[in-house]
Structures are given as structure tokens and as C-alpha cells.
Design a protein around this nucleic acid. Sequence first.
DNA 1: GTCTATACGCAGATAGAC
DNA 2: GTCTATCTGCGTATAGAC
Lengths: 226, 226
Amino acid sequence: MVKEPSPPPTAAPPTAEPGDDTESKILDAAHAVFMRSGTAGARMQEIADEAGVNKALLHYYFRSKERLAAAVFDRVARGLFARVGQLAMSEVELEEKVRLIIAAYLDQFARTPYAPGYLICEMNQHPDRAGQLLTALGGSTTVSRGPAMPFLAGLAQQIEQRVAAGRMRPIEPRQFLANLVSLCVFPFAARPMLCAVFRMDDGGFREFIEERKTSLPSFFLNALRP
Amino acid sequence: MVKEPSPPPTAAPPTAEPGDDTESKILDAAHAVFMRSGTAGARMQEIADEAGVNKALLHYYFRSKERLAAAVFDRVARGLFARVGQLAMSEVELEEKVRLIIAAYLDQFARTPYAPGYLICEMNQHPDRAGQLLTALGGSTTVSRGPAMPFLAGLAQQIEQRVAAGRMRPIEPRQFLANLVSLCVFPFAARPMLCAVFRMDDGGFREFIEERKTSLPSFFLNALRP
DNA sequence: GTCTATACGCAGATAGAC
DNA sequence: GTCTATCTGCGTATAGAC
């Protein structure tokens, strides 16, 4: 019971912590530590401390640091793409879909604000993670199973219809999606930079995001008016 | 002369390399290595190899790894914000300014595509970097000297005028800037993710960015039509 | 200024008792 | 399954010759 409440480091990990089994406690701790320190910067001892278990146990449950890091990466990636992937593939009308995706993203990141930065860092420094991302996503019921990307095709179709109906300017589907995701994710990934440049503290950032929840949908949908 | 042309790792560092003095060679090498491996993941030996000098020399010129990392961070930060900061503060008309900023960003990143990811990682994992960013920027002739942010104030004024003239929808200046930067920077920061999800190789990504150069200005300006 | 050789600590991983 | 103790290699940093 050495485990302290731990200075709220990377917001709440997905799974519960109280009387959970050791493996979960380790994974949750690793989740938090890897997110704030990066894989290379994190120390196994740090994870053990945060989990309130012995360092040797990390190796008992997860062979090596690299395997533990991979497990955490998978969990974070799935957590990020799950809802949004489902929303993107759903049959909802396009404008409403955009609103739902923005709301889902901003809402989720308000709870796990460090996930975007973690994923970006991890994939930039560890090239294999790109492939791992796809298998992680392909294995679950989310985005891309198989070689093509069904949700992109579906999106393209929706866009095409709307353009044909004269209700939207033409836009390449990948650019559509890249714009949408950029606007949602970047402020979280670049949070320290934004906070520095805009002179915001944690509260200021929260307000900034709150305002964004209302301004972003109209901004994005406006950009696509014919 | 152990120095190989080195497999184009992080695109060309700012300064030249050929017969330069040792300190510059080290800084350039550190620039490249820190960018692709991150500060924590990088090894001093790796930097020495890339610079074609002895490992001990790194400590001769830059005391410690941390100091070397700080020097690189400063250089990258200044390089990224210099042009854009100047553009943002210039007296150019707002629409034209937006076009110039987008062009400058996409053009610059086409040459140093890993800079955004590096900066984001560095600032997420190394909290002190936020302050360092501001001093680095404040020292140069770019963005924020003093406590306030002149370029934000100037931007706010331009927006206000345009809104008053009925030529633009109202938008909070910080949201304006956040949107602009997000759309420009994120695709580079999240490049491995985009390439994986969109099934793009390096060439495909280049094309994607090329298309973005034309589609992004109209997208952004369109979003602000009244 | 540049090199070789080396000191020193730390972090990942294992052995083995309980 | 969980712990203590320990091994091992690696990475930063320094000492000191040239």
C-alpha cells in the first residue's frame, strides 16, 4: 500500500484501479507513466512505484519494457479511434456526423488530454508503431479491417452526394478528414505550446476548449458551404 | 572522415555542413538525431557518429546532453516561429496574410517535416520547455517580447475591423489562430498516423501536401465568410 | 582542440527465497 | 504470485595524453 493518490498526472486511465488484479494495476500505471514521460524517458521503477508493486512484477507480467510499451500503445490507440471510427462509419447525415465527431473528440480529450501528444510522439520516434496502429485498429470493431478503408469510402460517398445536391463545395475526402481531425486534435497535442503562447493555465485551457466546442462546428461546416 | 552522407534522416538542418567548424557540425548532428529519436531516446554516441567527431567533444562544446538538447530546441523553435511570427505581425491585409502564412508553413515543413512532431514531443515530456520557448521567441525579433502578445492584438484588431465591415463572421482571435495553425501543422506532426490510415508512402504524402497547398486557403477563408 | 581510456551510476532484467 | 538481492550492459561524463 505504498500507492499514493499520485499527483493527477495524465488523467484517469481507462480501467478502474481499486482492488483490481495486479496486471491491471501495472497496465494502468504504465499507461500514466508512459504518457507523461514517453517510452524512452519512462523508468520501470517509476511504473512500479505508481502501481504500488515490485519492479520485478512488471517483468513477470510483461516480459520486457518494450512489450509493456506496446500494450499501452494499443490500448491508447484503440481508445482514441473507437468512438470516432464508429461515428465516421455510421449512417448519420453528414452535417450531424461532423457535429457528433467534434463533440466526441473534444469531450474525450477533456478527460484524456495527453493521449494525442503521446500517440504523436510514439509514432514519430518508433517507426514500427505505424503498423501496430493498423493491426490494433483492424483487430477491434472500429476503423479499417482489410486493405481498404470502408469509413473513408463511406465518407467520400456522403460528400459526393452532398456536392451533387449543391449543398457543399467539392473537397477531397482525405482533406476533409484531415481538416476535421487537425482542428480537434492539434490543440491538445500542442497544449503546452498553446498555453505558453496564449498565456493560459489549466483553467484557461479548459475555457478555451469549452469555447471551441461551440465555435468549431460552425467554423468547419461553414467552410464547406457551396 | 567517417561521416557518411547519412540516410536522409530528418531533412536538412538549417546550417551548412561541409567544412564547418566542429561546434556547428555537432549542433547539426544533434539537431538531426534529437529530432528523430527524441531527447530521451537519443544517444550521445549516435550524435558523435553523425557529426563525425569524438564523443568527448560533445561535452567539450556543450557541457552536458541536457544543454545540447536545449540548444537544439531553441534553434528549432526559432526556425519554426520566425517567418510565421513576422507574417502574423505584418500590415498585410487579413485574407492575404492567411494565404501567406499557409504557404509559408506548408513550404517550410516540406523541407523540415519532422520539426512539428519534435517540438510537440519535447514540450509534452519536458515541462520546462514551455518557458524556454517563450524566452527563445522573445529574444529573437519574432513573436512575443514583453508580457503581452503584440501579434495577437494586431490580429484581433484586423479581425474586428473585418467583422465590423460585414466581411467576416465573428471569431475569437485565439480560436482563429488555433484553427489556422492546427490545419497547417497537424498533418506533419501526425504524419506517420496519416500515412498509415490513408495508406500513403513518402510520395503519397508529398502529393497530399501539394493538394493541401491549394485546398487549405480556400477552406479556411471560406469558413470565415459572413 | 581532439583523441583514448576509464570512472560511475543507473536501468533493465534475472535468480531464487518465500 | 510477490518479494529481495544481484547481475549486466550501457550511457553520461571526466581525466589526462597528445
